[in-house]
Write a protein that binds this DNA or RNA. Sequence first.
DNA 1: GATGAATGAGTCTTCATTCAT
DNA 2: AATGAATGAAGACTCATTCAT
Lengths: 199, 199, 199, 199
Amino acid sequence: MNSLHSGQSSDLLKNPAGKREMILDAALHLFTTEGFHGAPTSQISKMAGISTGTLFHYFPDKNVLIDQLYLTIKKDLADEIQSQDNPALGSKYRLEKCFRGFINWGMDNPEKIRFLEQFYHSPSIGEAVKVKAGEEFEWMREIITEAIRDGVIRDLPFEFFGVMTCQVLFGVLRLISSNSCEMSVDEIIESGFAMIWIG
Amino acid sequence: MNSLHSGQSSDLLKNPAGKREMILDAALHLFTTEGFHGAPTSQISKMAGISTGTLFHYFPDKNVLIDQLYLTIKKDLADEIQSQDNPALGSKYRLEKCFRGFINWGMDNPEKIRFLEQFYHSPSIGEAVKVKAGEEFEWMREIITEAIRDGVIRDLPFEFFGVMTCQVLFGVLRLISSNSCEMSVDEIIESGFAMIWIG
Amino acid sequence: MNSLHSGQSSDLLKNPAGKREMILDAALHLFTTEGFHGAPTSQISKMAGISTGTLFHYFPDKNVLIDQLYLTIKKDLADEIQSQDNPALGSKYRLEKCFRGFINWGMDNPEKIRFLEQFYHSPSIGEAVKVKAGEEFEWMREIITEAIRDGVIRDLPFEFFGVMTCQVLFGVLRLISSNSCEMSVDEIIESGFAMIWIG
Amino acid sequence: MNSLHSGQSSDLLKNPAGKREMILDAALHLFTTEGFHGAPTSQISKMAGISTGTLFHYFPDKNVLIDQLYLTIKKDLADEIQSQDNPALGSKYRLEKCFRGFINWGMDNPEKIRFLEQFYHSPSIGEAVKVKAGEEFEWMREIITEAIRDGVIRDLPFEFFGVMTCQVLFGVLRLISSNSCEMSVDEIIESGFAMIWIG
DNA sequence: GATGAATGAGTCTTCATTCAT
DNA sequence: AATGAATGAAGACTCATTCAT
């Protein structure tokens, strides 16, 4: 018996993506389409292909599940953007790269975007988690500071810039995905960016 | 029986603000702080000062309640803005008046703003109601068209303008209410408007 | 239609003993035979002839149910004993009357006796309730004091006398109900009393 | 491989007191404080320092665990008392030695006493086990018979004497451990014994 | 219209037990 | 022997909704 091969095949059969990840995936879908209280844990585990008990083996309760999901998604987004950053380049270029990273990630992950939109304002996510998730984006503060020094954006507080940029980028993604306005994807993106650069 | 007398006294004693309104008020508060499924109808009726059965006298079920609440709030906002409009004036002035109307209404009704933010993306509101609520703002299309003709804003579809403006105005209100950025209320508002005018 | 008659019959059909009492009766039986955690609330409500939800209308949770049951039973016992007391009589006579009252009540209510035996030492009953239940018997302190003054029982603290008397009387009732010793009920009772009088 | 060496080291490292005993110890504590159904096997194994699966290696199921625990404790008590008995001495002396043995064991093992009090009347212990546990004390029947012949105690059935003596001794231990009556330990013990001798 | 007791399907969560490693 | 992830039946409790009064 070839232990290497048998090991691989059993890994693939039993662990196609890791149960924790399968739970998070199912939860993402159901929370987004049904809401937090509208998505029973029984349905989440069924969709994840595990038993009801197993869900609680990975997440002590439903609140922890949505908190971890929120955190995971925000970190996923932050990592994706940061992975493409190059501190050696100019601030305007770096900033635009971040925006495009956000938009691309959002177009690739429409359900995650819907989740973030829906739950950022929701009482279902713990406050501590919201704060912690926000910290994943702290590294951008430096780019903003530099961009202000370079005159690329107006001299306004980081908070203002952060909130407004998010609002505009979420708006861009909603327009793209709703497909209800007669503009090309690129037009939407460029028009959105225009609001940020001057604002 | 003297209907005038009996009507008056019972109205004043039992119905100081109208039970329907008291239910909507309680629902607004609880849906905003607890979410749709997180706010039991029993708690809503208790806060409204009525019995559990009475709630279902005014709203056939809980979904109708939140739908009506959403509709009522959006109409409230639209009416407030429209009441201050004067079609005889210039498009830029009218548009700015609308924005300021929105902002002022939002500052006066922070819970309603939170409700709109939270439930605009939520599956708890019926699609038909979302559409119907959107129609309350159809009258603004004319102002936008005029503003584009006057070169006050860029020539972009109504949908783009509508989504983006909402996003920016909600951002402005959030910054104002969170109080976390070192800017005066006026600075926040003006900086927000600047993004819209050019965008 | 005879409203008087119909009223009576519907009362009898719908309220043969009061739902609260039916729940307490069912709980008494099931807690005694299955233990606290061994008796599902679903089974209690089924035996009480009500729905699962109704149980929680009368008792906010299962712990309150057993606490109230314990309190009700202890009060039942205390009231029964006190109702036969006559402060005008001598202390020995009164004390013996109390003992016989206890024994008779215990023989009439074997399940309640089993319940008290089983749950007096159990962590399932809240401490506060145990204390409160104990206070139902405070009025006996006076009889004991008098009995000591009269030389009917030895001069020992109320606590000693209380605990020991209970132990003996519970023992008497167990021997009577187990039927495993070749003594008549009266012999058991008299032999038990003998232990108390001198102790 | 040196079995002696490996055996020793693993025994000492992994089995300082025997896993079976550690499970029984943990179960004793948790059953006493939380009740049978209130103490999850997972918590018992955690407290015993073993895995959930190992518990079921030593005890096929939870009922067997509590049955064995009950049996072990009763045997422990019986052995302790019997070990101090000397058939050559007089019946009154032997009997008193037994009582003192019980009291001393109870003062040394308060948790075991609480366990016996709590579970003697509980449906969680199998009937067969209760009978079997009772047999551990059969050897005392001879002492009682002798004591009756010697006129040390009244001529009453073994069952009466057994139940009543237990009740009194448990009462004594409860008074000692509750510390709520103004008597010295010796006074409580002697006053308790007095009840037995005459009864 | 107004009440609130009653319902029971549905929710989250627990836990004894198994079994592949 | 030992582990601990996995199971899923079962439990406590909730809550939208009804209906007799």
